[in-house]
Amino acid sequence: MSQDQAFPPQQQNPPGTTDQMIPTPDHGETSYVGSEKLLGRKALVTGGDSGIGRAVAIAFAREGADVALSYLPEEEHDARATAEWVRGAGRQCALLPGDLRDEATARGVAHRAAGELGGLDVLVNNAGYQMARRESVADVTTEDLDRVFKTNLYALFWVTQAALEHMGEGGVIINNSSIQAYQPSTSLLDYASTKAAINNLTVNLAAELGPRGIRVNAVAPGPIWTPLQPATQPEEKITSFGTDTPLGRAGQPAEVAPAFVFLASPATASYVSGTVLGVTGGKPVF
C-alpha cells in the first residue's frame, strides 16, 4: 500500500466515526483473503467496531471464526457495518454495546460473548483511548487519567478475568499495545504509560497461563489511520501523521490485522507466547 499525499486537515469528537474520515481507512474489505486458519474458533474483539478492531474482525471471519464485537453505544453505526462484513463471510457476529470502564459491563461482555457464540477461544483486547490535544503533564486531569487507565488497563483486566472462565487449552489472548510503549510522545504521557503496562502484563500473563495451554501475546502498532486519530490529534498533526516512520507513511488497519491472525492461529503461532509483535512501519520495538 502507498500513500501519495498527506492526510487533509480534519477533526472529530471522540470516539470518532469511520464515515467522516478522509480518506476512508482500508480494513481489508476488498483485499483480505482467508485460508481457514481459525476455522470454528470463537473470538471476542473489544473496540471491534472500527479501525484495527474492524480489520481484525473481518480477517478472523474470513479465516473461519465467529466474532463478538464489543464497542461503545455511540459507535453502533460502525459496529453494524463491521457485523455486515463478518456475516458476509458466512460467520456469526454478536453485537455487544457497553462502556468497558464499568466493571460489571466489562465482565458481562466476556460472558455474553461466550454465551452468544457458544464458547470463547480467542480474546483480542483492542479497545483503547488516547487524547493528544494537551501541552504538558500539567494539563492531564484526574478525569483524563480515569478515562485512559480504565479503558486501556482496568477493562483489559476485567474482560480477561471473565474470559478465562470460558477458555480452555488452546485459548489465545492478544493485547493491543503500541509503539508508544517504546517511543512515547510527550502529548500521550498517560496513554503511553498504559501501553508499557500492557507489555508487562502480556509477558506476566503468558507465564501464568502457559501451564493451562493458553497463549498470550501483544501487537504493537505504529501510526495507523483509524478514527481515534482525527478524534484525538490536533489538525496540524494529522497532515503529517505517520511520515516520521522509516516507510514514510501511516499504516492502514488492514496492514495490522494479519499480525493478529498469525498470533491467534495454532497453525502459525502454536509455540509463540509472551511476545510483542511490532507493526510499526520500521520503528524499532525493543
Results as ranks from 00 to 15, higher is better:
residue 9 P to L: 05
residue 12 Q to S: 06
residue 14 P to T: 11
residue 17 T to G: 09
residue 21 M to N: 04
residue 21 M to Y: 07
residue 22 I to E: 14
residue 27 H to D: 13
residue 27 H to W: 01
residue 29 E to T: 09
residue 40 G to P: 04
residue 41 R to C: 02
residue 44 L to I: 11
residue 46 T to P: 04
residue 48 G to T: 09
residue 49 D to M: 01
residue 54 R to M: 10
residue 54 R to N: 05
residue 55 A to T: 10
residue 55 A to K: 03
residue 58 I to K: 04
residue 59 A to G: 10
residue 59 A to H: 05
residue 63 E to N: 10
residue 66 D to N: 14
residue 68 A to P: 11
residue 70 S to H: 06
residue 76 E to R: 13
residue 77 H to A: 15
residue 78 D to P: 03
residue 78 D to G: 02
residue 78 D to E: 04
residue 86 V to C: 10
residue 88 G to N: 07
residue 101 R to A: 02
residue 101 R to C: 12
residue 101 R to P: 00
residue 110 A to E: 08
residue 113 A to M: 06
residue 114 A to S: 11
residue 117 L to D: 05
residue 119 G to P: 10
residue 124 V to W: 00
residue 125 N to S: 14
residue 130 Q to A: 14
residue 134 R to I: 15
residue 135 E to M: 06
residue 139 D to G: 05
residue 140 V to L: 12
residue 144 D to Y: 14
residue 148 V to I: 15
residue 150 K to Q: 07
residue 155 A to P: 02
residue 157 F to T: 00
residue 159 V to E: 02
residue 161 Q to G: 11
residue 168 G to R: 12
residue 179 I to R: 03
residue 182 Y to K: 05
residue 196 A to Y: 04
residue 197 A to N: 03
residue 198 I to P: 03
residue 201 L to C: 03
residue 205 L to E: 01
residue 207 A to F: 05
residue 207 A to V: 09
residue 215 R to W: 09
residue 227 P to Y: 10
residue 238 I to F: 00
residue 240 S to T: 15
residue 242 G to D: 06
residue 250 A to W: 06
residue 257 A to T: 08
residue 261 V to Y: 00
residue 261 V to H: 06
residue 273 S to Q: 05
residue 277 L to S: 08
residue 282 G to V: 02
residue 284 P to W: 07
